[in-house]
Design a binder for these strands. Structure first.
Length: 419
DNA sequence: TCTGGGGTCCTGTGCCGC
DNA sequence: TCTGGCGGCACAGGACCC
């Protein structure tokens, strides 16, 4: 059996742990730059504030209903997530951390009663030790565990936040009651496709012929169908911690058109990206750079240019990576256009320890030492104190974070004081 | 005025060498 | 020597997730 454990309204719950007077009050958490709503407490949900909506459109509703608004504090959420995950691992060894607020668990060789009991214990312990409420869905496949989790959460009063799909009639009943768009793996495009042929519920979906699903929704769609039929096609992936790509991308506060400005941004992204690379002891061999217009602007002139290139060797040096990224940028840049967002993605990641020496990297030892001292200085005096010449020396990230909460758990200066 | 960032996987296409 | 067919590969783009 698979269980999916999910933290309820995770970011909002994290904020609430440290401000208990906000219990029962509507809370929203905004994305970087205070752009979109990315988390809502139940009270905020019932005010009709949608997920992912631009915050400025709801400013009035926030004020009228005294909604507590927070800028995202990922340091805090990341730390709270680690705490929750380590508690879960005390109960069961097979854990796949799926996202910051979700994990799949695999129960093998336990009786049904034992599993139920363990799930309830996990819910209780996580709440007691961290203050974060969680829900658990249990089922024979991962996709059905997602469905079960939804039910556990939606009817938490009756389910006590735990629901199990442990027989066929429960499976059918759940699928009949779930909207097609609420199934894990069905996005907007597939929903459109399915509604067109009259598929509205999960049950309608599993009633389709396999060939249709394969043809119209690829192998992924077919795997999903099998999962919902109770045949497991997705397994627990442990140790997924090592990433296959590392992206650093940002929207700009204003549109940019000069090459120099873009070079400055791309260099900064390259520096940030290579630092992430070094932190997980990896190197990259492929770099992708993109620049794009504002997709929300009301004209037809929308563009997105990207270019991917392979380095002649693997590296995690900020200098090599930014040099190469700028080369790519120059190839896709065209004068006279305006850009609103850019990014760099590092791919072809390999462990630093497997480094293949090549003719080109005579400099490698020198670069390694240099990066080590840069990281050392940054760790001592604060992030990104050392900058490359092509970065703007005065510029600091102008991220808009007007409503940032404190780093209660990761910075001793900001710890909660009880008077 | 103000619309996030970071991932994964799959598929179509074009090119290359056999 | 030329050509068609085919597999493998790289790459771009699309779809999904949180």
């Amino acid at each position: 059996m698979f269980a999916l454990i999910d933290c309820n309204n995770f970011y909002a719950s994290c904020e609430r742990v440290f401000q208990p007077d906000l219990i029962d009050k509507p809370i929203v958490v905004l994305s970087n730059n205070d752009g979109c709503v990315i988390a809502r407490s139940n009270e905020a949900k019932s005010l009709g504030i949608p997920m992912g909506t631009p915050a400025f459109k709801y400013k009035k509703i926030f004020e009228e209903n005294k909604v507590e608004v927070f800028s995202s504090n990922f340091k805090l959420y990341g730390d709270m997530s680690n705490r929750v995950m380590s508690i879960i691992s005390r109960f069961i060894p097979d854990v796949e951390i799926y996202s910051i607020d979700e994990a799949f668990l695999k129960f093998d060789g336990f009786s049904e009663d034992t599993i139920d009991q363990k799930c309830r214990e996990i819910i209780e312990t996580v709440l007691k030790w961290t203050g974060i409420p969680v829900s658990i869905g249990l089922a024979p496949t991962k996709s059905l565990a997602k469905v079960a989790n939804r039910i556990a959460k939606k009817y938490s009063n009756e389910t006590n936040s735990f629901h199990s799909i442990n027989n066929n009639s429960k499976r059918i009943k759940s699928l009949k009651n779930i909207n097609i768009k609420d199934i894990w793996g069905i996005g907007f495009q597939n929903e459109k496709k399915l509604l067109k042929i009259g598929v509205k519920s999960g049950f309608d979906f599993v009633s389709l012929p396999d060939q249709w699903v394969k043809k119209n929704m690829s192998i992924i769609g077919l795997k999903l169908k099998k999962e919902l039929e109770g045949i497991s096609t997705l397994s627990i992936e442990e140790g997924k911690n090592n990433k296959k790509s590392i992206a650093t991308t940002r929207s700009f506060e204003a549109e940019i058109s000069s090459l120099d400005d873009l070079i400055e941004r791309i260099t900064t992204f390259a520096v940030v990206g290579s630092k992430k690379l070094r932190r997980q002891n990896s190197e990259c061999s492929i770099i992708s750079v993109y620049i794009r217009s504002n997709p929300f602007k009301d004209n037809n002139d929308k563009y997105h240019f990207s270019l991917t290139g392979a380095l002649p060797f693997s590296t995690n040096s900020s200098i090599e990576i930014s040099k190469f990224a700028i080369k790519l940028l120059k190839k896709i840049y065209s004068k006279g256009r305006v850009y609103k967002k850019a990014g760099i993605i590092l791919m072809g990641l390999t462990p630093e320890s497997n480094h293949q020496f090549s003719f080109f990297d005579k400099n490698i030892e020198k670069q390694k030492k240099l990066m080590k001292s840069i990281d050392g200085i940054d760790n001592k005096y604060g992030q990104y104190k050392v900058r490359l010449a092509s970065q703007d020396q005065k510029r600091i990230w102008k991220m808009n974070r007007q409503k940032l909460s404190r780093n209660y758990t990761t910075n001793i200066e900001e710890i909660l004081i009880v008077k």
